[in-house]
Write a protein that binds this DNA or RNA. Structure first.
Length: 489
RNA sequence: GGCGCUGUGGCCGAGUGGCUAGGCAGAGGUCUGCAAAACCUUGUACAGCGGUUCGAAUCCGCUCAGCGCCUCCA
């Protein structure tokens, strides 16, 4: 069975056929680095990281391009629009590139904690001003963009005439209605039409991010960087373009228009969009205080959380939902995910250390692998993959305690399967403890355990229970098993 | 108002025209001085009302509820 992906452009699941196999080009819209990366961003990039990982698992050679938007992101589409980066810079009294640096570093830190691979290329908008100016010139020459008061706008009406009403093909939007919805905004008379969007904006005197261009000293429009950088590094057409659903319109719609203006064929084969994330059932919003930063999740520093959650638990939680479904973050959901994650990883880690293979196999690794792969081949269905991995836990436990025989060949295939799926595809890794600290703690607790064992041996349960209860009150749980007592906490 | 999505057992969350999702919690059992842990077993759910069908939670229609996008957003 081969990979199928849901293409937002057609609204259907389609067979995935790269243009030049085994190479795959994938472009994902990255963050605008003007504030700390938030959970929704993180989910999108974790989703595409999983997609990247699975494509690699299938043997594709993937060039994964994810941009950093560090300029040109307008606050709104009116002429009074201001660049997000420079606005923040004025607020914080910093150089614009200082803001960019600060939040780029923050973004990378969070992505590293969530165990995502870095993209193959991570281009910045400010590093491609020349290319953007060239693209604008080309569009002006073709009559698909016009100048107004030092700024350049894309002429959507003209584009639609030449491309058979293509504007709106991705977001399924009716261009006529967009025209009718025209609102009168102060100071935006320069545009011929409300739906036209900026390719170049003339900078106001107080605007501190600015570059020379043939038209004015200014900065590029937001949508242009992605068109320019995706085509520069992946060529046109390329295989996959991804991003959050909220970018479908206008951002991706505009990207398609720009790319078609520069090169008439469809720029992208498969458009993949990840769904949004809610927090306690509501959309995240700074104004209502319903927000959560990844860092707050990892440290537990939020009134919404009862405890800290390890980045791997967060990632596991995300992988338990399909990337095209809305995912609701809640403390209870994370708590349940943590338990499931621990159970899965415990057995997985025991499996890795298990060496006692038998002569024949009573367990069919191939069937399990097929199930894992068909789950992922069906538009990257990670919830099914995880369910399948859990299904495998029972026979694995039987193998571990000697009730089920497995050949050495199958044992290594089984280990490979779990490693490939858990670490490779899902991008999960075992939570490593602070070993040194743990060891010291263990020595102390072992002494108490021994005292309790002695008390129990002489049936002095008052003393033994006192030890257990006092340890319990500081969060250490004793577990009596057939091979003695162990602890957790 | 426009476009789109969702409504699944206590909670989270897949899927599907007839065949076990899975996780968490709960219940029963094994073990144990007791407890915890661990292990084993266990749930017959799919918003409501109509319709199509031999058969629908799965397809169609309506109703109700919720959500997202439509302005910057991943």
């Amino acid at each position: 069975m081969s990979l199928k992906v849901y293409n937002s452009l057609s609204g259907k699941k389609e067979d995935f056929k790269p243009i030049t196999p085994p190479n795959v080009g994938m472009y994902v819209c990255g963050p605008t680095v003007y504030s700390e990366v938030h959970l929704g961003n993180a989910r999108t990039f974790v989703s595409f990281d999983m997609i990247y990982r699975y494509l690699k698992y299938l043997g594709y050679k993937v060039r994964y391009v994810r941009n950093i938007t560090d300029a040109g992101h307008l606050e709104n589409d009116a002429d009074i629009g201001e660049d997000k980066i420079s606005k923040k810079a004025r607020l914080e009294q910093l150089e614009p590139m200082e803001i960019v640096q600060k939040y780029t570093v923050n973004f990378h830190e969070v992505m590293t904690l969530l165990n995502t691979y870095p993209p193959s290329i991570e281009p910045t908008a400010t590093g491609h001003i020349v290319e953007q100016i060239d693209a604008i010139k080309e569009m002006v020459d073709q009559g698909l963009a016009y100048e107004a008061d030092g700024s350049i706008y894309f002429d959507v009406t003209e584009y639609n005439k030449r491309f058979d009403g293509a504007y709106g093909e991705l977001s399924k939007r009716n261009i006529e209605e967009l025209f009718n919805e025209t609102r009168i905004l102060e100071g935006q008379a320069a545009k011929k039409n409300q739906v036209d969007f900026a390719l170049w904006k003339k900078a106001n005197p107080e605007h501190i991010m600015r570059w020379n261009s043939p038209w004015s000293v200014g900065f590029p429009g937001w949508h242009l960087e992605c068109s320019v950088m995706s085509s520069k590094y992946l060529g046109l057409p390329f295989d996959i373009h991804g991003g959050g659903m909220d970018l479908k319109f206008p951002h991706h719609e505009c990207e398609i228009a720009q790319n078609k203006a520069l090169n008439p064929e469809n720029p992208v084969q498969y458009w993949l969009h990840t769904n949004m994330l809610t927090l306690n059932g509501q959309r995240m919003s700074k104004s209502t205080g319903n927000t959560l930063l990844p860092i707050e999740l990892f440290t537990g520093d939020s009134p919404m959380l009862s405890q800290a959650f390890h980045p791997m638990v967060v990632r596991f939680f995300m992988m338990q939902a399909h990337y095209r479904s809305v995912l609701d973050f809640s403390n209870d959901g994370l708590l349940a995910a943590q338990k499931g994650f621990d159970r899965l990883m415990k057995v997985y880690s025991d499996l890795k250390n298990f060496e006692k293979a038998g002569r024949k196999s009573e367990f069919d690794v191939g069937t399990l692998r097929d199930k894992c792969e068909s789950a992922m081949n069906d538009d990257f269905n990670t919830p099914i993959l995880i369910a399948t991995l859990f299904d495998g836990l029972k026979p694995i436990k039987s193998i571990l305690n000697g009730n089920l025989s497995i050949s050495s060949q199958d044992l290594s295939a089984l280990k490979d399967l779990y490693t490939n799926m858990i670490e490779g595809v899902l991008g999960l890794k075992t939570i490593e403890q602070d070993r040194e600290n743990e060891d010291q703690k263990d020595v102390i607790i072992q002494i108490l355990i021994q005292m309790r064992t002695e008390a129990r041996a002489r049936k002095d349960f008052t003393t033994s229970d006192e030890i257990r209860d006092k340890l319990g009150s500081v969060g250490i749980t004793l577990k009596d098993g057939p091979e003695g007592t162990s602890w957790e906490g």
